[in-house]
């Protein structure tokens, strides 16, 4: 029946394209939009339009930005010798929240995944090599995830970058702050013991 209301069906079809959103959720969301005041629905439409018009990926680090280059790449106070490589734009936000990193970023937009056929040419790796060519970067911090895909990417990058004579570091892994040792899985505990430090 809902299909006979073409504008509604069209919105459901558009919403169902979102990752993790099926027909049922899309229909619920469409109903929600329909029941909102006119100005709320228009504000949503305007925001989506503005996002596509004004937000793009920085041509240097490939992070989301409204300026060109992004604020971090343009900031003279950031350490240009230190480059942190992450998988996705949201990983930059996670590291920035820590206020512990003062270098620059490079977003790969994915991770190597042999089983899914995702190779180096599908990521921003050629662009990374171009940045390294410029010679300003002295240390690379690989901050890909600690999953098989993230580790595969880290190993590939290390193999690619080390021959250039740069310092290559990897984000430390171990016991999360505030957690109980008895609930931590064997892999994490094993890595934490391997990476123990002088106290």
């Amino acid at each position: 029946m809902l299909n006979s209301i073409s504008y509604f069906a069209k919105l459901v079809a558009e919403l169902a394209k979102f990752p993790g959103v099926g027909q049922k959720t899309a229909t619920r969301l469409a109903f929600f939009i329909l029941t909102q005041p006119q100005e709320e629905a228009e504000a949503l439409a305007d925001t989506i339009r503005d996002l596509k018009r004004k937000v793009h990926f920085c041509p240097i680090c490939f992070q989301m930005t409204e300026s060109d280059p992004c604020q971090i790449c343009a900031d003279p106070r950031r350490d240009r010798n230190l480059l942190c490589i992450v998988e996705e734009p949201q990983d930059v936000l996670a590291i920035e929240r820590s206020h512990a990193f003062k270098g620059q970023y490079h977003v790969l937009h994915g991770a190597l995944s042999p089983l899914d056929g995702v190779g180096p040419e599908d990521l921003k790796i050629a662009e990374l090599e171009e940045r390294l060519q410029a010679g300003e970067i002295k240390e690379i911090l690989i901050a890909t995830n600690f999953s098989v895909k993230g580790e595969t990417t880290a190993l590939y990058l290390a193999r690619l970058i080390k021959p250039r004579g740069l310092r290559v570091t990897r984000l430390a892994h171990g016991i999360p702050l505030g957690s109980d040792l008895e609930y931590i899985d064997q892999g994490t505990v094993g890595r934490a013991i391997e990476g123990r430090q002088e106290f």
Binding site: V148, T152, L155, Y156, D185, G187, G190
Partner: peptide, 21 residues
């Protein structure tokens, strides 16, 4: 219940390639 994470597999790109295959 984790039996073996096979951590050694994740420390070499060539090993990951063969294990994935």
């Amino acid at each position: 219940e984790l039996t073996d994470l096979h951590l050694g597999l994740r420390q070499d790109l060539d090993i990951i390639s063969l294990a994935s295959y």
